[in-house]
């Protein structure tokens, strides 16, 4: 299992659009993806759960990934966030 802290820099945070882009990307990997924010842990492949976190711009979240393709998955999810959800 690998874990990484990252700041969401997109101007809105996890809104409907950004949450769905993240969940879509996470779903491409076999590994389990979880997001921890404010003491709450949710499935990173679920748009709905990501929205309910209420992550705002400049908030820091923790991503944990575990599974066969964990390092590739982590790298690609971090890149997505760093590019402000643009592929």
């Amino acid at each position: 299992m690998i874990e990484k802290q990252i700041v969401i820099k997109d101007s809105v945070g996890f809104h409907a659009r950004t949450a769905s882009l993240f969940a879509k990307k996470a779903a491409r990997f076999e590994s389990d993806v979880a997001i921890v924010f404010n003491g709450k842990k949710v499935n990173g492949k679920s748009t709905l759960s990501l929205m309910t976190l209420g992550v705002k711009s400049q908030d820091e979240i923790a991503i944990t990934v575990s599974g066969k393709d964990e390092s590739l998955a982590m790298e690609s999810l971090v890149t997505l966030i760093e590019n402000n959800f643009k592929d």
């Binding site: 949450a19 769905s20 879509k24 779903a27 499935n43 492949k45 679920s46 748009t47 709905l48 759960s49």
Partner: peptide, 12 residues
């Protein structure tokens, strides 16, 4: 598009 993603949500 976000509605569609919600309808496809694995957790739901």
């Amino acid at each position: 598009d976000a509605y569609l993603e919600i309808l496809k949500d694995p957790e739901l």
